[in-house]
C-alpha cells in the first residue's frame, strides 16, 4: 500500500479504520472487516454510493423500500448519529455494537428507550406508546378495535409508569425491562458472534491481526 491511502478510504465516504472501530466496540478487527462486507452490500442496494440511505435500510428490514415502517425509521434515525440523512460505516459498526451478545445490557435498555421516545422528549409518553401499537398492528395487518388497543396501552403504561406522572422516564424504563427481560430480546443478534462466517470473503485479504 506504501504511502498511498487505502482504496477503501479513497472510495468510501465516512470509512473508518477497523482497528479504531474494534477498540470502541465489542467487535474484533476481523469482525469489523466482515461487517464492512455487509455494509457494502446494504449500501449499494438502491443507491450505489457507499452510504446506507433510509430506503436501503427499509428494504433490508421490511423487504419493501416504498412502504414506510415507523420502527425501521427509528432504527435509521438512531444509527444516523450525525443526522445527515445517511448511515456511514463507523455509525453502522458502533450502532450494531449495541446488538452484540457481549454488549452491556444497560446499553441495550438505553437504546430501546431512545427508540421508543419517538419525539425525543426524554420520556416515553402514552401517546407515543399508542402510536407504536397502532403502527405495529398496521404493519402486521392485524385488526383490533380502538377499545382493545386503549386497554392494552393503559395496562402497560400503568405497569411501567411507577411514579404515575403520565410518562415513562429512563429509570422507570430500566425497572420495567428488568421485570420483563423479553422486551430487549431483539436487541441481541447471535449473528454478530459469527459474523466472520457469514461474510468470509474479507478473511483472504485482511492485513491486521486481532
Amino acid at each position: 500500500m506504501g504511502c498511498y491511502p487505502s482504496k477503501r478510504t479513497k472510495e468510501t465516504p465516512g470509512y473508518e479504520e477497523p482497528t479504531v472501530l474494534a477498540a470502541e466496540t465489542p467487535f474484533t478487527v476481523s469482525e469489523v472487516e466482515a461487517l464492512y462486507e455487509l455494509f457494502k452490500k446494504l449500501s449499494r442496494s438502491v443507491i450505489d454510493d457507499g452510504l446506507i440511505h433510509k430506503e436501503e435500510l427499509q428494504l433490508a428490514l421490511s423487504r419493501n423500500k416504498n412502504r414506510r415502517n415507523l420502527f425501521a425509521d427509528r432504527i435509521f434515525d438512531l444509527f444516523d448519529v450525525k443526522r445527515n440523512g445517511v448511515i456511514e460505516f463507523g455509525e453502522f459498526v458502533r450502532s450494531l455494537g449495541v446488538f452484540h451478545p457481549n454488549a452491556p445490557v444497560e446499553d441495550k435498555i438505553h437504546f430501546t428507550f431512545r427508540l421508543y421516545d419517538l419525539r425525543q422528549t426524554g420520556f416515553i409518553e402514552r401517546e407515543e406508546l399508542k402510536e407504536m401499537v397502532v403502527a405495529l398492528l398496521h404493519e402486521s395487518d392485524l385488526l383490533l378495535s380502538d377499545d382493545v388497543v386503549e386497554t392494552i396501552v393503559d395496562k402497560t403504561f400503568c405497569d411501567a409508569d411507577l411514579k404515575g406522572d403520565g410518562k415513562i422516564d429512563p429509570e422507570e424504563w430500566m425497572e420495567f425491562v428488568s421485570k420483563n427481560p423479553s422486551l430487549i430480546k431483539n436487541m441481541t443478534l447471535p449473528y454478530l458472534m459469527d459474523i466472520t462466517l457469514a461474510f468470509p470473503s474479507f478473511v483472504l485479504s485482511t492485513e491486521v491481526e486481532d
Partner: peptide, 26 residues
Amino acid sequence: MAPVTMNAFELISTSQGLNLSSLFEK
C-alpha cells in the same frame, strides 16, 4: 389470543422493522 393481557412493548418488539437479524439474511 388474549390481547387485553398483552404487554404493549412486547407487541411492538415483534415488529419486522426492529428485527435486525434480517440484515444478515442473504
